[in-house]
Design a protein around this nucleic acid. Structure first.
Length: 564
RNA sequence: CGGGACGUAGCGCAGCCUGGUAGCGCGUCGCCUUUGGGUGGCGAAGGUCCUCGGUUCGAAUCCGGGCGUCCCGACCA
């Protein structure tokens, strides 16, 4: 089905009223996807071709490193999810079957694959191996958004590796990292990989693959030789000009100054010259702790959690009053608590800090002399901070893939063990690796669209070539376009023929909206010279002289190879 | 989970404040016209005004409940 007159391609002149993201607007306008409910999308024929093209690239590269394709169900019994402790996740869709048994709709497939592997793998001789599938994921997202970028149901390529030890996992992880590089290079996207948060799943390492674009939900910190999700990024802070510490802290009267801005203004000290104290409570063992960061810095809760290695909560007002002082005037000096000092604070300078006394601050406070502390890296990096002497920038990006060293997070609760040479049962060491094809498609729209519409990289494009046939039905132009269409198909190109009974303006506009990388136009003007005009979609660049209708196929293939 | 907005024809919207025969543009269908940038003309079809209830002689319009959708933030194993 490659004749536009017969294709279900409902293009729209106007974007959906409430669409915000470029990919949302254009994918709907171009007739690629349609929404049926919040975060629930159908892929129409042209859109599905794109999705399938991405899937095929992934399949080829994962197969090449020995991944074995399979398929697991979306509807699953709840039991394994209880064992791994994931049954209580809010995003997990839960339901019951007719017998009243608890079921879930899978949000990923660790539970399923690990349950199988627990039954199947017995010996170290069965390891290592890697399996993957393309399957629907269901997630009851708090806020689906931006068209196909964040949905409640989506297809994911998820792969899993099973090894006998950490060294095996590292090798598998490296193999997947290599495959991912080849996959993303082939898509034609602008992309990079970044260090990412390992989250509550533990594990020893994780990377995310990011496609930068304005609709992205992630923020990435970049410097030459450095790329990290801001969730985990570390950098040298920008310096502030501060006085040397005074011989001893001096109490100053600061009535009503309870915020960084107020104290800064009142005492004529830059915000970076203040110490901001955040009282938190960790687990029972460590209890009440005061976290101290520079006044102009923000705490990154993910980094803090990772640094502490334990969950924590903000301290209550009662706890603060009891251990420190009145809110707004608390500080590390004299605190009845462990003090954690952020790495962004230069301990050789003098700072202003709360005095733990109403309406008073201390000036000239020196960490280490005036209070004991432990170091922690928990601040959010900012544009202009430096890594290795280079200034970082922060840009938004879409996460299009991730790789993750799971370790034994799932194999232990689900009993996936093997017997080693000594007959000792050991947990299998796992890795998991995801890619979202829909996000790759949307990212390509975001990165390459112009004011006329979409411009697909040729590796993803739903068709290689679109032929725009001008002239009435039954005209010479249409007959010549049909001939060209057959020649190009015969040589193996995917060709879309616009044979609709419509004016030239409408056809050109739709072709630019749909974004097929090469457009050939057959009209009276071109026919007279025995040629078809050719235009590259990226940049709408006309190809000088077009292509001759005689021997067109070879010429088009050659031209197509030069496209982005 | 907090904040904001919206729901009228396939799409984009007006009408609502001030209750009284449901409108516009695009699209669709028919005929003609036009065929190198969304051609022009004539004619036509198409709507439980999200839903349930209330007020009223009368509700798209006023009041209340519910459902749905979007945007911002929080969250996102």
């Amino acid at each position: 089905m490659t004749r536009l007159s017969q294709l279900l391609l409902p293009t729209e002149r106007e974007p959906p009223a409430d669409a915000e993201a470029v990919s949302h607007k254009l994918m709907v306008r171009a007739g690629l996807v349609r929404q049926i409910g919040t975060g629930l999308w159908s892929w129409l024929p042209a859109g599905w071709r794109l999705h399938q093209n991405v899937v095929q690239i992934i399949r080829e590269e994962i197969n090449a490193i020995g991944g074995q394709e399979m398929l697991m169900p979306v509807l699953q019994p709840a039991d394994p999810w209880r064992k791994t402790g994931r049954y209580d996740i809010d995003e997990l869709f839960k339901l019951k079957d007719r017998k009243g048994a608890d079921m879930v709709l899978a949000m990923t497939h660790e539970e399923c694959i690990t349950t199988h592997v627990a039954q199947v793998v017995r010996s170290y001789r069965d390891l290592p191996f890697s399996v993957y599938h393309f399957q629907v994921k269901e997630r009851d997202e708090p806020r689906p958004r931006a068209g196909v970028l964040r949905t409640r149901e989506f297809i994911m390529k998820d792969a899993y590796t099973f090894d006998r030890d950490e060294a095996g996992l590292q090798a598998a992880y490296d193999a997947y990292a290599g495959a991912y590089e080849r996959i993303f290079a082939r898509t034609g996207l602008e992309w990079y990989s970044v260090e990412s948060d390992v989250g509550m799943m533990g594990g020893s390492g994780a990377h995310e693959y990011m496609a930068p674009c304005s609709a992205g939900e992630n923020e990435v910190a970049l410097a030459p030789g450095y790329a990290a999700n801001v969730e985990v990024a570390s950098a040298e802070p920008q310096a502030v000009d501060l006085p040397d510490p005074m011989p001893a802290p001096e109490s100053v009267h600061t009535p009503g100054a309870t915020t960084v801005a107020a104290v800064s203004g009142l005492l004529d000290v830059p915000a970076g010259g203040l110490l901001k104290s955040l009282p938190i409570v960790i687990d029972d063992e460590r209890g009440f702790v005061v976290l101290v960061v520079r006044g102009d810095h923000r705490v990154n809760e993910i980094k803090l959690t990772n640094a502490l290695g334990a969950p924590w909560r903000a301290a209550s007002e009662d706890e603060i009053a009891e251990r420190l002082g009145p809110p707004g005037f608390i500080g590390p000096v004299g605190a009845d608590a462990t003090v954690l000092l952020d790495d962004g604070v230069d301990a050789e300078r003098g700072y202003v800090a709360g005095a733990n006394e109403g309406d008073h601050h201390l000036r000239g406070v020196k960490p280490g002399r005036d209070f004991e502390f432990e170091r922690v890296d928990c601040r959010t990096v900012e544009a202009g901070d430096t890594v290795g002497g280079h200034s970082i920038t922060i840009e938004p990006a879409i996460e299009v893939g991730n790789i993750f060293q799971l370790g034994t997070r799932y194999s232990e609760p689900l009993g996936a063990t093997f017997l080693d040479e000594d007959g000792v049962a050991r947990p299998i060491v796992m890795g998991s690796y995801g890619i979202g094809p829909a996000r790759i498609v949307a990212a390509a729209v975001e990165q390459f669209a112009d004011d006329k519409g979409i411009s697909w990289p040729r590796a993803l494009a739903p068709w290689d070539v679109e032929i725009v046939a001008l002239g009435k039905p039954g005209s010479d132009e249409l007959a010549a376009a049909e001939g060209l269409y057959r020649d190009l198909q015969a040589i193996g190109l995917d060709v879309l023929l616009d044979d609709r009974h419509a004016g030239p303006g409408a056809k050109f506009a739709d072709a630019e909206l749909l974004g097929v990388p090469l457009r050939l136009t057959v009209g009276r003007r071109s026919l007279e010279s025995g040629r078809a005009e050719a235009q590259q979609r990226r940049g709408l660049k006309d190809i000088e002289g077009g292509i001759p209708l005689e021997g067109a196929a070879e010429a088009v293939v050659e031209l197509w190879r030069t496209l982005p």
